[in-house]
Amino acid sequence: MRINADTVLRLADLARLSLSADEVERMRRDLEAMLDYVEKLSEIDTSDVAATAHVLDIATPFRADRVADLLPVAEAVRNAPQHDDSSIIVPKVIE
């Protein structure tokens, strides 16, 4: 499969990455090599095969809706690069 620079830029935008011109070319080449390699999967007829998203045969476990240990707000925001006592600070979102 041929991948062009526009495709790489579109993927980068979706993934919120900005790439230098060098990176775009390197990623384009690597993606193309990888997609060529995985092309071998088309040798297998999977028309009647169910997909496996997960190996375990388990149902979603439910728990009682009880208030348990809550993370204090000050603890929750402590790792944010910019924060005050109770909020995470980010660049202005709404004009």
């Binding site: 993927l11 993934a15 990455l17 990176e23 990623m27 690597d30 997609l35």
Partner: peptide, 23 residues
């Protein structure tokens, strides 16, 4: 800010896999 943080924060292999996964 998202784009710059992620682009400067992740290494090449992680970016490569994120792009392939996004594709």
């Amino acid at each position: 800010m998202y784009k710059r943080s992620r682009s400067e924060g992740f290494g090449a292999e992680v970016k490569r896999r994120i792009l392939l996964g996004t594709f």
